[in-house]
């Protein structure tokens, strides 16, 4: 099977690249597009550190053959920082000490973005459910949950017209 040209809308920009058959979305993001925020931790969909949003849904990009999402809109952590400004989730992760080694952080933030998009006022159980597919081996889950709750609060406050 020959390689093919695949087109995606990545962080709002149309990008085209050549993908070998079976190439994963993660490999294409990292190797073809130079977007290295999403990490490879297990390459079998078990750790969550490769999580990106495909059409707004969190997906383990290490398991997604890129040709199956051709034309889709993909959002990575690089897109969250667009313009150099940190958003509420990023700044809450800093303020709540929700990062340790940093290797799971990209995936954690992306599932948080998807959660808050869909549910601006999540319960703690909702947050735990949302991050349940993501492993933090430094075991800093508590500050991560606190940071996402704090991010939700900040985003709701910002949304209230003054």
């Amino acid at each position: 099977m020959p390689s093919q040209i695949v087109s995606l809308v990545v962080n709002g920009e149309r990008r085209e690249f050549i993908a070998a058959p079976g190439a994963t979305l993660l490999a294409c993001l990292r190797e073809s597009l130079g977007l290295i925020a999403a990490k490879r931790g297990c390459a079998q969909g078990a750790c969550g550190t490769c999580t990106v949003l495909v059409e707004g849904r969190p997906e383990a990009s290490c398991l997604v053959p890129v040709e199956t999402v051709a034309g889709a809109s993909v959002r990575t952590l690089e897109g969250v920082t667009a313009g150099g400004e940190l958003d509420e989730v990023q700044s809450a992760f800093i303020d709540c000490f929700a990062t340790q080694c940093g290797f799971c952080t990209s995936g954690m933030i992306m599932v948080a973005e998807a959660l808050l998009e869909r549910n601006p006022d999540p319960s703690e159980d909702d947050v735990i459910e949302a991050v349940s597919g993501n492993v933090c081996r430094c075991t800093g889950y508590r500050p991560i949950v606190i940071a996402i709750m704090e991010a939700a609060r900040r985003r709701r406050e910002r949304a209230v017209p003054r």
Binding site: R30, I36, A38, L77, L86, T99, G102, T105
Partner: peptide
């Protein structure tokens, strides 16, 4: 005191060895 490496982690700009290509 904010962690010195936190901004790199939350923006995905921290360079791990496998990010070198």
């Amino acid at each position: 005191v904010q962690r010195s490496d936190a901004r790199g982690h939350v923006t995905g700009r921290t360079e791990f060895f496998e990010d070198v290509a």
